[in-house]
Structure formats: structure tokens, C-alpha cells
Design a protein around this nucleic acid. Structure first.
Lengths: 254, 254
DNA sequence: CGGCTGCTTGATTACGCTCAAGATTAGTGG
DNA sequence: CCACTAATCTTGAGCGTAATCAAGCAGCCG
């Protein structure tokens, strides 16, 4: 949370946070890997830091490693032909980034720190080798990738078929649940991204995001204080998520 | 193309189409697997058929295998709470379906044949085992999954930030290129899905799809004859794809 | 031939974008 | 610590795109 300036890139080899002790173990790649194997897995992991605004990797850069976020948050985005950003995801601790680069050996997107970030770097060649030797590691890698496919499909559905309100509600709910899984409050949290970023990600104008926050606050669903979000009525927020299209069968809600 | 009725499910063990001879080899999972290993891989594959309209798998069904489409096409979709379909993809020969089920061990979606289909069934447990033994198989599986993540992200971007015309143009272009990769014409092809399905997938009303086809035909980009599409001006179609939002830098197009 | 489903076309409506301006916050340097 | 600037956020007014509602048409099957 402190805003002290960080040196460019710091190797945190001295800070011993073994996977086995990591609070993110349940969410991360090593889940299910036996103790002996875990040591070997850790031997290929480099732990690093990245200051706010810096890039973990850039589009078209050669793909060498996947990254497990440990603290902080980052956004991934592609660049349109006109140079504008197109945000493809927000990532929280315990999540893997760079998985979309395996197929082409080049990163198809950028990853930039939204706040001061620490992460684990997993060289992909070595990860592949280990993965052959450790069925549990292979399985977890496949699981995580499968899960990302599912989530990306879900995002596509959301963006294709939902109203502005439903989109924002879904994002807030997603963040809320992800914070909860990481041991933080599901009801109160700070947005690390700007409204512009949120709008970009959800395919909405900044003005719309702003108006929605105001409206949700007026409706007693949220309290919004700049970046600080208080979810007052979680059920109502969830209800907004279910306001599906094609309500042909339910003419009650005008 | 014939609509002769098929028996429920036919095992095509008698029809020997080894991976090595399969025209889809370049696109499919066995790509890069050595000859000796290929035999072993084939030993776990079951080749089957599915009549139009039948399901390859259904939502919530237990996940046992992934499937490689050989001929025909299918759609994958989820069901909303109100029972309506939400189409998540159209799949052509050489593509793998079921990858989104690995993480939860249950299929999160349905897969239904849009026309008569033949496919290869790959039991996942055995595939995992083989994958540990064959680095090239493991690599190809990861590549394919990574690619799907990239494509799903691309779809989300498309649905979040594009006009109706751009969405349809992108789908047509995608189909065109996928047909070309499979040795078919990129300029003339049959849509195996209905306008309703297209609209559902692209997040647009059927009426909009219909109007767009008419408009594109009027503009000399396509010829549309029911399900038969003739792309007359491929460059113009591609141009529609690039009509990005946020054209702040390009005020020429009003 | 009638009924059903899929496709097309038209008229109206509404949601969210754009443009514009002000308000608030954050960042910087004296 | 305050002043100044820049960026971010909020609010308002008008407009455009695509949805909805409604009807007619075409193809397919029993």
C-alpha cells in the first residue's frame, strides 16, 4: 500500500517465500505438487519486483516465461492499429499471466503493473521439462489453462449480451470474489485501475462507468469513494448480474 | 451434405484414417509427434460419427475426453438460467472441443452437431499419461490451449468494442480463413449455422444479421444466397474488420 | 395443402456514445 | 505547506446504432 518508490527491478532471492508457505499456494501452479517435487519446482522460479507503471512484458516480445503474480495487480492489453490500448484483463495475486504466448512464442499482449507488484518468473522450457516429470504439475497447468479458456469465454458472453449495468456489476462481483478467495474483504476494496481502464475493458465509455457508479450508489447497492468500493447490498449486485437478455419468458420486469 | 439419416452413433473403427494420413494432421493434436509415438497415440483414439442435431456432450456432464472434429461442424453453447442458448463457438474440422472442461471435470458447455459430424475421441486420462511420455504431444496440447485463450480473448475484444458490421465481417473472415487452411475455398462457402445462431454468437439480433447481409450484398462485398456465401471483394471485407473504434487519430471517416 | 421454422423488411424506441464543460484529485515544484 | 498543472472523474444535452415489435415471405416437412 505504501507509495515509496521502488528501484527498477529487484531480485528478491533474499526474501524467502517458498511456495509451500505462500498464501497463494491454493490458487497457484504448485497446487498438488508433492514436497520433494516442490523443491525442484522452486529451483527454477525467480522472484522479482516491478514498480507501478512498469511492464512485465510487451507485445511482440519473445516468450520465455510465464509469470505468477504474488502481490499487487496488473492489466494486460493489446494495442490497436491506431496505438490505443485494448485491455484484455485485470490480474490479481495467484494468477498466471503470459499463457496466451505459448502458442506463438511471442507475447500477443502487454502486461503492465497497476501498482507496485511482486511476482514469480517461471522459465517455460524448464517448466515444460518438469511438467513431464511431475504429473501433478502437468495437471495443474492444464487445469489453469482450461480455466482461463472458460473465463475468457464467459467474458465474451458478458460483453456480447449484457447491458452496461450488468457488465459493471459482473466485474465488481468478480473482483469481490477474487479478493475473498485471497483472504481480503469481499465487501470493501480498492480499485487499482482507473475508470477509463474499466470502461475500456468492459467495452463502455468512461462516462457510462461514472454514471453507473453514481446510479448504483443512489440505489443503495454501493458506496463509492474514488477508488474505494463498499458493497452494501451484495444480493442486489448479484441480481444485476442475472438481468439476462431475452427475457421473453419473464415479462414481469418491465 | 446429404441429409440421409444416420444411425445414432456409429463406431468407424473399420474406416482406417490414421492420423499420419489425415488431411487435418497439420491442424490437429498429433502435429509434431514422432511416428512410433503416433501409433501409441492412435491406440487411445476412438473414431465416431454423430448425426446432425445430436450432442457430442452436454452441460454438467462428466468430463472424460476431449474431441477432435474430423468432418462437419458443430456449435458449443451454454444455457442461461431462463433456458435460452448462449453460443460460445462454431467449430470446424481439425479443432479440439471440450478443453474448457479440464479444470472442473464437468463440461461447462454443450456441443451440438450443426451437420453430420465425424470426430476422434481422446480419453483425457490416457492423453495425460501419453503427454508425460511425449514432450511433443505435451507441447502441442499446451500450444492449442494457449491458442484458444488467445482467440477467446480476441472474441471478447470483438464483442466489446465493435459495431455490428465489424462483428459479422470478422466472423465471415474467420470462417473464410479457416476454410482456406482446410483446403476449401476461402471465397465461397456454406454457412452451417442459422442466422439466429450467428446473431446469438455475435451478440446481435437476427434482424440485424439479416440487414447486414443485405447491406453487404448491396455494397458489392458479398453475394448471399441463403446459406451460400460468395465473398466478392475480400479487401473490402477486411477493411470492415479494421473499422476500429476510437478513431480520434483519423477524422477522415466521419 | 397446411403448418412450422427461418429469413427479410419496416417503424419505433432506447441504451449508451459523443461532445462539452465543470469538479475533484493527484502529482510537482517552489 | 501551498500553488499550480495535469489528469481523472462527474454531470448534462443531443444523437446514432442496434433492439424491439410487427408483419410478410420463403422454404421444408409431414
Amino acid at each position: 500500500m505504501s507509495k515509496a518508490k521502488q528501484p527498477k527491478v529487484v531480485n528478491l532471492a533474499d526474501i524467502k517465500v517458498a511456495c509451500a508457505n505462500c498464501s497463494l499456494y491454493e490458487l497457484c501452479l504448485p497446487l498438488g505438487v508433492k514436497d520433494d517435487d516442490l523443491d525442484e519446482l522452486e529451483s527454477i522460479i525467480a522472484r522479482r519486483k516491478l514498480p507501478k507503471g512498469h511492464y512485465l512484458f510487451r507485445q511482440n516480445q519473445e516468450f520465455n516465461a510465464i509469470y505468477a503474480l504474488r502481490t499487487g495487480s496488473l492489466k494486460t492489453f493489446t494495442l490497436n492499429s491506431d496505438g490505443s490500448e485494448q485491455i484484455t484483463g485485470f490480474h490479481l495475486p495467484g494468477e498466471l499471466v503470459g499463457l496466451d504466448a505459448i502458442s506463438s512464442a511471442k507475447h500477443p499482449s502487454n502486461a503492465r503493473a497497476l501498482e507496485s507488484v511482486s511476482y514469480c518468473e517461471l522459465p517455460f522450457d524448464q517448466l515444460e521439462d518438469l511438467s513431464s516429470k511431475m504429473p501433478s504439475l502437468q495437471r495443474q497447468l492444464l487445469r489453469i489453462m482450461s480455466n482461463e479458456i472458460r473465463e475468457d469465454t464467459g467474458l465474451a458472453i458478458l460483453l456480447g449480451n449484457s447491458s452496461a449495468e450488468e457488465r459493471l456489476a459482473s466485474l465488481l462481483l468478480s473482483l469481490s470474489q477474487r479478493f475473498q478467495h485471497r483472504g481480503y474483504s469481499s465487501e470493501q476494496f480498492n480499485l487499482s485501475m482507473s475508470r477509463t481502464d474499466i470502461g475500456n475493458y468492459l467495452g463502455l465509455a468512461v462516462e457510462t462507468i461514472s454514471r453507473l457508479f453514481t446510479r448504483m450508489q443512489d440505489h443503495g447497492i454501493l458506496n463509492v469513494n474514488g477508488k474505494l468500493i463498499d458493497i452494501i447490498d451484495m444480493d442486489a449486485l448479484k441480481a444485476l448480474t442475472n438481468t439476462c437478455p431475452s427475457n421473453r419468458a419473464d415479462p414481469s420486469t418491465a
